[in-house]
């Protein structure tokens, strides 16, 4: 089958749907602080990093964990990649507002990595993830790396946008 439906529509599917809806709800009410193209790239970074990881280590021959009901690719798996996106946006939104520096930056990265581990623990309880050779300590290491790259990417994009006079505008003729 091209994409499998859920074996049973239960806790994991509801977890993905409700969290995605509730997670993205704040995005529509929060005042705009930076251009939408930055938000698009932040969401895409989050989704592509999750896809890159899951499609590398969650399928045979590595197969460290399963996502949702089956070891195969379900259409609900695709929606699960958007689970973390609203929190990735919240992380950079608050970073932009609070601008933690020095040791506060380290605390920021550790804090958000712990939040992500907690969120993943919750998703494991709801059977979104079923660990085989993976555990939450591995996740914490990954979140430390990914959160750092993600925040640094945001800083880079924001700075690049502010210094837009130096950047090359996409020209109309190019299409």
């Amino acid at each position: 089958m091209f994409l499998y439906p859920p074996a049973r529509f239960d806790a994991n599917e509801w977890f993905i749907i409700l969290n995605s809806l509730l997670g993205f709800a704040w995005v529509f009410f929060a005042p705009v602080r930076y251009p939408h193209s930055i938000s698009i790239l932040i969401v895409m970074f989050c989704v592509s990093a999750a896809i890159m990881m899951d499609h590398a280590i969650a399928i045979p021959p590595v197969d460290m964990y399963d996502i949702n009901d089956r070891p195969t690719y379900e259409w609900m798996d695709f929606f699960s990649y958007f689970l973390y996106a609203p929190y990735a946006l919240l992380c950079v939104y608050l970073y932009d507002k609070l601008d933690p520096k020095g040791l506060w930056f380290t605390a920021w990265i550790i804090g958000w990595s712990l939040f992500c581990v907690g969120y993943e623990w919750l998703s494991v309880q709801c059977h979104v993830f079923t660990f085989k050779k993976w555990n939450l300590m591995h996740s914490f290491c990954m979140y430390l790396v990914m959160t750092t790259i993600h925040v640094q990417l945001f800083r880079y994009l924001r700075k690049h946008f502010q210094d837009r006079s130096e950047s090359v505008f996409p020209s109309k003729t190019a299409e």
Binding site: L3, L41, S48, I59, T72, P170
Partner: peptide
């Protein structure tokens, strides 16, 4: 920004395609 966008959209589309064609 376009280079980053292209890189990520290629990753998303191609990884999904490869997983669907191999695993499913």
């Amino acid at each position: 920004f376009e280079i980053l966008f292209l890189w990520m959209i290629i990753l998303i589309i191609h990884h999904n395609f490869v997983t669907i064609t191999t695993v499913n």
